[in-house]
Design a binder for these strands. Structure first.
Lengths: 116, 116
DNA sequence: TATTTCACTTTCCTTTTGGAAAGCACTATA
DNA sequence: TATAGTGCTTTCCAAAAGGAAAGTGAAATA
């Protein structure tokens, strides 16, 4: 039969998708970005706005997001010193991804509740 | 000063985004869906189309994706038996997410290479 | 008969992620 | 002076993700 064909290459799509996933991977990064873009600036506010997140995880993820220039950590030198987290302009480029995920998640939940 | 205000709620966005992330989490699920949607049907073809994936991980992720009704495992009763993986119609609903991630990843790579 | 292919599974091990709880330095408030 | 809040860090530990390598059973091919 000699029906052995190679696989179909999909690297044109897989590679950039993987690059994106590497930046926003995990349960927490997008929720944190959403919270900061919503206007939460203080560590405790961000923490309270995301149910289930612990300070350890939040601190680590904030550092990651800072490195990728999605948010910035601002130290305000009043007395007492205040620390604020603000979205960088680059964070806005994630909006299409967030919107797509939000739309899908909303629909998925409807689908699940109508089935079972 | 009494400047204590509650945090800003962002659950309207965070909750559906988390629902979506739970389904497509990890490094591998979207690449697998992309490969299957591209037309790769056989286990080995999917494996070869995604650099770095091991058969253990692929087998596990395929089961997860089947459970979420994103792909189906089809046993073709020729001799020898063939096993094919096909996208379910529901997988098409992920296209906006994949496109958004692809676009972002492409731009991100350009950004990184132009900076450093 | 020997090798190869297919679709995995199994074992073992390392890394990553995450959670619970406590602590801490500083400041503010009662 | 005692308590509370802020922005974390530290410790300890469990679970999940992931990788490397080998194996498996059935069937096809050489």
């Amino acid at each position: 039969m000699a029906n052995r064909m190679g696989y179909l290459s999909c690297l044109d799509t897989v590679k950039p998708v993987r690059d994106a996933i590497e930046v926003i991977n995990g349960k927490w990064k997008l929720p944190i970005i959403i919270s900061v873009m919503t206007g939460n600036e203080r560590f405790t506010d961000i923490q309270e706005s995301i149910p289930g997140i612990t300070p350890k995880v939040l601190a680590k993820e904030l550092k990651d997001l800072e490195q990728h220039q999605l948010i910035k950590r601002v130290v305000v030198d009043d007395y007492p010193v205040k620390i604020l987290y603000k979205p960088e302009p680059y964070a806005d480029t994630l909006t299409p991804i967030i919107d797509a995920l939000k739309g899908w998640g909303l629909n998925h939940r409807k689908r699940i509740f109508s089935k079972e």
